[in-house]
Design a protein around this nucleic acid. Structure first.
Lengths: 131, 131
DNA sequence: CTGTATCCTGGATGATACTG
DNA sequence: CAGTATCATCCAGGATACAG
């Protein structure tokens, strides 16, 4: 009986912890998931500041999508748009400190992506040599 | 002149490193991005094995989507489907060791998601108290 | 250069019903 | 319980043209 009680408590704690994790990951996916947001931040962390520059780094993104992603990133406090009046007007985007909080996430994903690609490639090679 | 040369070399190295990171993150997003895959893996890591059990943990997922996601996860070597003949037939899904490689990614995302939610909430509160 | 406006399509997802 | 079938819907994102 006390065993059962303990199990219930354990299960409940487990389920709660599970929901915490699930919600947190869900939030992260919502904030920086999708094809582009992280990519843009990475490109900017590497020095890209101008619209066209970012578009060139993040291959495949269209102007329309880049524009709307930049707006969202600005709204969420990741970046800021700076307009310098001059001839011609110069527009630059800059990372705000908050985007640095993503460093761990980006590092983990980079690491995983590299090993995953290696794994897929080795499987592919193994397949070919079997044929 | 040699300054310029060095800069070019540096820039090239920088651009290459940038592409490496971009590609790696892109691969990761492709493999486990999307709304569901990570969530399913998390639920399973917390003990869910049966179809319905997983569906209950991962709130909001439909049977059709869960079914197709499980198939993809199996194809990509994250999980395995085990069928035990009996009365009635029992079907369980199990995580394979490969899904453990995602631990760091999940941890980083969990941590970030939690602090992000806290940040958003505090901003929201600040807004309200200003009104 | 830095975008915006429009139009359009495929694919992802929801709802619901059904099967073994 | 563990899915599949079918239909309807929605929206991210591509293509292209245009604007300040």
């Amino acid at each position: 009986m006390s065993d059962k009680k303990e199990n219930n408590l354990e299960n409940r704690a487990f389920t709660e912890e599970c929901h915490t994790v699930l919600n947190a990951v869900s939030d992260t996916l919502y904030a920086v998931g999708g094809k582009w947001k992280l990519m843009i931040i990475i490109a900017m962390a590497r020095g890209s500041k101008r619209f066209t520059e970012i578009q060139r780094q993040v291959s495949g993104i269209s102007a329309r999508v880049l524009s709307s992603e930049l707006k969202e990133l600005e709204m969420n406090g990741f970046i800021i748009k700076k307009v310098e009046n001059g001839y011609p007007v110069s527009i630059e985007y800059e990372l705000l400190p908050y985007s640095q909080t993503l460093e761990e996430v980006v590092n983990a994903m980079t690491k995983w992506g590299i090993q995953h690609r290696a794994k897929v490639k080795s499987e592919h090679t193994a397949k070919k040599s079997k044929k």
